[in-house]
């Protein structure tokens, strides 16, 4: 299988498929490789592993292979795959679970810019209770050299059109948001400690 030749495979991890099934809430074992997910995926052309290959690798327990591929980060979450899946697997949720496992295991994401954006978003949301877009984009650019020179003209046009809110809006309930974020992190730490 091409998948096996191209990817560096170290080992099949027992229990990995079950862990992903649990994290994503999806019946991973049900996939029979019809390939409809990949056929309809708008981002398949920029993925190193296609959606059906990711599922197969998860079934085989190839943890390093799937947690180090760019596909989990390049999923836009459009859910076209799920709309067409005859086995009722929400692939977008599988990708999200894999992305999250990659982060909580302390691995380096294959597309760091996407991960940096998501982190900046949650950071800003926790700070103010609402995401402050200018802050999210600025932090992403500050932290990712590859992003610094992109969209400068777009930013200028948006500013000129009055579409960049420079000040965040703070809400009292930001406390609740911070608590939710902290709880999620604490649970992730506990699971990580109990995993073999």
């Amino acid at each position: 299988m091409r998948l096996v030749e191209d990817q560096k495979i170290t080992r099949s991890v027992p229990g990995f498929a079950e862990r992903v099934a649990q994290e994503s809430g999806q019946p991973i074992e049900a996939c029979y490789q019809c390939g409809k997910c990949t056929a309809g995926c708008p981002l398949a052309s920029v993925m190193d592993m296609k959606p059906n290959q990711v599922i197969r690798a998860v079934q085989l327990g190839l943890e390093d292979t799937v947690l180090d591929c760019n596909a989990v980060w390049h999923c836009s979450g459009c859910e076209t795959c799920f709309s067409r899946c005859p086995r009722n697997i929400d692939m977008s949720r599988v990708n999200k679970a894999l992305a999250r496992l990659c982060i909580i295991e302390g691995r380096k994401p294959r597309d760091p810019a996407v991960a940096t954006f998501h982190k900046a978003f949650l950071e800003s949301m926790g700070r103010w209770g609402r995401a402050h877009e200018v802050e999210v984009l600025s932090l992403t650019k500050l932290r990712e050299a590859s992003q610094r020179l992109k969209d400068i003209r777009l930013g200028a046009v948006l500013f000129e059109k009055g579409r960049l809110g420079l000040l965040p809006s703070w809400v009292r309930k930001s406390r609740d948001v911070r608590r939710i974020l902290a709880d999620s992190e604490a649970r992730a730490r506990t699971t990580q400690e109990t995993e073999p």
Partner: peptide, 21 residues
């Protein structure tokens, strides 16, 4: 005093409970 829904970033980086909360 509405708060952010978490959007895609919440769905990716948070667990199911937090992403729903």
């Amino acid at each position: 005093g509405w708060t952010c829904c978490g959007a895609t970033s919440g769905g990716v980086l948070l667990d199911h409970e937090a992403a729903t909360a």
